[in-house]
C-alpha cells in the first residue's frame, strides 16, 4: 500500500507571523491525506498553527554540481552585508 503512495514535503508555520518551514516528508495518496498525515506525524507536540504540503516531485531543486557556480561567487562580496554603514546613535534596533 505505502509503496504506491507518492512522497510529500511538509511545511509548518510554528506561530502566526512566522513563515512556514520545511520539517520533513511523508507518504500520502493525495493532498487531503497528506495534510492529515502531516497533522498526525509532525504536529503531535503543538509544533504549529498552519500546514503546507507539496508533492515532492513538484519541487525543483538546484543541482549539487552547480553549487560552485551558483553560490561561490557570493562568498567574496562582503560589501553586500550591511555591516559597513555607520549608524546614527539615534537608531536603536538595527
Amino acid at each position: 500500500m505505502k509503496n504506491n503512495w507518492p512522497i510529500w514535503e511538509v511545511f509548518i508555520r510554528s506561530k502566526n507571523g512566522l513563515s512556514h518551514k520545511h520539517v520533513g516528508s511523508l507518504h500520502a495518496a493525495d493532498a487531503e491525506m497528506a495534510i492529515e498525515n502531516a497533522r498526525d506525524v509532525y504536529t503531535r507536540r503543538t509544533e504549529g498553527v498552519s500546514l503546507w504540503v507539496v508533492e515532492s516531485k513538484n519541487i525543483t531543486a538546484s543541482a549539487p554540481t552547480d553549487a560552485d557556480a551558483l553560490f561561490e561567487p557570493a562568498a567574496n562580496k562582503i560589501y553586500r552585508h550591511p555591516t559597513f554603514y555607520n549608524l546614527p546613535d539615534e537608531v536603536k534596533h538595527m
Binding site: 500500500m1 505505502k2 503512495w5 511523508l26 507518504h27 500520502a28 492529515e36 498525515n37 498526525d40 506525524v41 503531535r44
Partner: peptide, 12 residues
C-alpha cells in the same frame, strides 16, 4: 499500521 503515517494516526 498499514503505513507508518497511519500507524501514528490511529494510535494518536
Amino acid at each position: 499500521g498499514p503505513a507508518l503515517e497511519q500507524d501514528i494516526a490511529i494510535t494518536n
